[in-house]
Design a protein around this nucleic acid. Structure first.
Lengths: 203, 203
DNA sequence: ACTTTTGTTAACCATTTGGTTAAACTATAT
DNA sequence: ATATAGTTTAACCAAATGGTTAACAAAAGT
């Protein structure tokens, strides 16, 4: 009964489904296309995951669990506020450059299905930013940084790191540059975003 | 041949389609549902717009044309750089608070269909940020603001203004607050975002 | 008055789509 | 070797879906 065997088929399916779902979303993805991508028969998808919905949820949770821990680790570390901002920006952008479709996939499906957030919160390892909030409030009180609500600072950090990937097609149009140049901008942002934020709040 | 009559049916369809498309996306929307929402027969949709694709494109262009001019006007105005940042943030957030689903709709469909951007660029009134870029470069040269690439500053402005709406479900989960509190945060951002940006670049 | 154009509907159609079934195949244990 | 449990497939199926047709109603033009 042990899973000594390599579960290649199941993981093949998951990876194929991840690719298709991330490109087309839940509604736009087709079971047949996922089966083709995985190189198997469509019935096997149902054998392993019962329904499109369950397959989707498996993919979604996998995607979310690739991103959430990063946020959690950095935000709850013992490092200073500025270090957190630097580390998160660097880590996050490096990671997303390797998985460019992940953030958009998650945000998109959460918008279509807002009640899904509650399910995620109930799960383990959902990010918690209490420590970060306290840290910001302390620094504001002691006058080390400009007054700002922790929530606003948090939103700003997320926005500056995540949006450039989600809004890439639009931004490329506005700025009028090609993919490669845009990627170079992202590369630069690994450090520049953090400095931008720190400049905005330091006294 | 004059359109003296009110084109209620056509606009009814457009408005209904806008609501459905914005909530469910192109792939997730159903023609029947749009017809129901508009209170008409499904065949009428095809009578007015031929196909789902064309109806979608009509809705998309309408949505885009509600947002793009704002960007254009502010960015190409004669006002100072800081004024532009303040005005855009205030205008944009005010507008989106009234149309919360617009930005996500546009960004989402552009991600599914990146070649759509080229079509938009070809159309009239596609935003142009050359004036803004020159303005930033000048101020950097004369030492009035910290060195920053105009493209990066532009991305930051867009990110800080747009992302809080697109990422709302996720951010509400992270910050652990309700809709009303979140809306108050957005209200505050009308002015705070601009000051955050200005603090980040002023010397 | 009547003809033509425009607007609207119910019924229909072909295709797509998620899902099922039963049979075949594979490996493993006995 | 053979029974057994797990894996994979081809063939099906019912429902949903985008789109069409033909008939009819309402304006608009003459």
């Amino acid at each position: 009964m042990n899973k000594v065997k390599d579960t290649t088929t199941e993981t093949d399916i998951l990876n194929a489904a991840k690719r298709i779902f991330q490109h087309k979303g839940m509604a736009g993805a087709r079971m047949q296309e996922i089966a083709d991508e995985a190189g198997i028969n469509k019935a096997l998808l149902h054998y392993y995951f019962r329904s499109k919905q369950l397959l989707f949820e498996a993919v979604f949770k996998m995607a979310f669990s690739m991103l959430a821990p990063q946020l959690n680790e950095v935000m709850n570390a013992d490092s200073s506020l500025f270090e957190k901002i630097r580390k998160f920006s660097n880590n996050y952008i490096s990671f997303v450059l390797k998985h460019p479709y992940l953030p958009n996939f998650i945000i998109q499906e959460l918008n279509r299905n807002p009640e899904f957030v509650e399910k995620l919160i109930a799960e383990d390892h959902f990010p918690n930013i209490e420590k970060f909030k306290k840290q910001v409030n302390d620094k504001v009180t002691e006058g080390t940084i400009k007054p700002i609500k922790p929530e606003q600072l948090f939103i700003n950090i997320m926005a500056l790191n995540i949006f450039p990937f989600i809004g890439a097609p639009l931004l490329k149009g506005f700025i009028n540059i090609e993919n490669q140049t845009y990627n170079q901008l992202m590369e630069d942002r690994k450090t520049e975003v953090a400095e931008f934020i720190i400049n905005a709040i330091k006294i």
